[in-house]
Every structure is written in C-alpha cells, then in structure tokens.
Write a protein that binds this DNA or RNA. Structure first.
Lengths: 118, 118
DNA sequence: ACGTCATTCAACCGATAGGTTGACAATTCG
DNA sequence: CGAATTGTCAACCTATCGGTTGAATGACGT
C-alpha cells in the first residue's frame, strides 16, 4: 500500500492537471457520454479533444466502450481513489477531524461504522 | 467554492505528477528540511532538484524561509487541501461510506463529531 | 453502392518539462 | 581577506504537451 504504483500516479495527476480534462471528468460525473458530447463545451477541434480523452483513458480515469460508430465514455473512479489515497497521507496536516474519522474507517473493526449505516 | 481557481489547481496537480516532487513532499511531512536534504535521495544535480522545489513553491505546496545561507522548506498543506476538495466531488463514486461521513462533517451542526472525539 | 456521421491517425508546430553544465551570489568560517 | 558551503541563474538539450490540419477508418441510412 505504501508504494502505490508511482508511475500510474504520475499519469493520474498529470491527467488531472489540465482544465479541459478536469472538465470532461465533471461531465462524465453526470453519466456516460460520447466523445463529441465531451468535446462540445471546449473551443477545440475534435481531434484535440480526442487526445485528451486518450490521456484520461491511459490514466484509467475513463473507460471507453464502442457501440456502433460512437465511442461512449464512463468515469472510472478507481484511479481517482488512488489519487485520494495518496492525498490521505497528508490529510492530518490540514484537518485533524477528518483524519480521525478516516482512521476509524480504515481500522480492522468496522463495527462502529456499520452501526451508523444500518 | 465551485470554481476553485482552476489555474492554481493546474499547478498543484502538475506539481504532484512527478515522483521526485511527491518524494520531496513526503520528506517534508517529517518537518522542515533544507534544499540539499530534499535533494539528497535523488540521483540528480542540486540545480535539478532546485527547479523541482521552485515548482512546488509556485504551486504553493511548499513555503521557503532563508536562514543564513541555507533555505528551509516546509509543507504548506493548504494547496493539498484544494486538490482534496476537488477530489471530494467524486468521492461518492468509489466510497459511499466515506462520503456520508464527510457530509456529516461539513454540515452546520458538528455535534455528533464532537461527541465522538471528546 | 454512396454519402455522411463519429472518431482516429499522422504530421506538424510552438511552448514547456526535466535534466545537465558552468558561472555567479551570498553567507559563514578560519 | 580568502576559502568553503548553500543555493540560484542562464544556456542548452531532448522529450512531451496541447493544439492544429488534412486524410483515413468504420458504421449507418437511403
């Protein structure tokens, strides 16, 4: 858990470092979208947008499924979760409260949490 | 809260996309360090490391204080918190449990939390 | 079969990243 | 003062980024 596939984190964080790509992820938060749908909000050629999508896909932030002639994309939250795990290490620097709760979540006994949920 | 200074997020995520810089942040999690201290673990000239530090500083992930001839760096958690806030929007995609707890944290009444902590 | 729609590919472009080297600046020590 | 320590600056190099254009691919509708 400590190494966290550094090379993949490189890809993920780099993918997140562009506002176009972050915008696309935001759109995908609303559900499956075609490439053209994702490209539409941006003043950019489709080929340009296509490249961004490919980076998101290679970073495994997005999954693509081709149905007929259109490619549908969906958010792949796993990679975001990895970025989040990396950040979690630092969480206590800015928020002792959230950190405490999270520590509880990750402890070997999820009893307290299950009580809360059920 | 919705726009989150996109240009700054660009810088932050880009800064995090390099393993050398992430390594430096990890070192800084242990407290204040000099530039040479931060550079030491990496097979790289000091000038190279110095450039990485400057990016971290410009992304406001690190603060620098010059005392005598040595520059001391400290972690600046605020920028990491911004990245975390951005990710928070997507948290429910991979963890309904954590999301629920966090929502509780951010609600106007922190009563339940205080009971847990004290 | 033909045209059109959705998307990629290949080539190109200027800007930036990530690294090096060598010279410079500032501070401390003898 | 002079030498060593700590770090930056400037110039350079190669690779990648973020974008364009124009042609190619593949599936659909008629």
């Amino acid at each position: 858990m400590v190494e966290l596939q550094s090379a993949h984190l490189d890809q993920v964080f780099h993918a997140l470092s562009d506002p176009t790509r972050r915008g696309m992820l935001r759109t995908l938060a609303g559900g499956e979208r075609s490439i053209s749908d994702l490209a539409a909000p941006f003043a950019m050629t489709l080929a340009g947008a296509s490249k961004h999508l490919r980076m998101l896909e290679e970073a495994r932030l997005v999954r693509r499924e081709k149905r007929g002639r259109t490619h549908f994309c969906r958010l792949e939250p796993r990679a975001l979760a990895e970025a989040d795990e990396w950040l979690a290490f630092y969480r206590h620097f800015w928020s002792a409260r959230l950190d405490a709760l999270e520590a509880e979540l990750l402890k070997p006994e999820p009893k307290a949490l299950e009580r809360k949920k059920k």
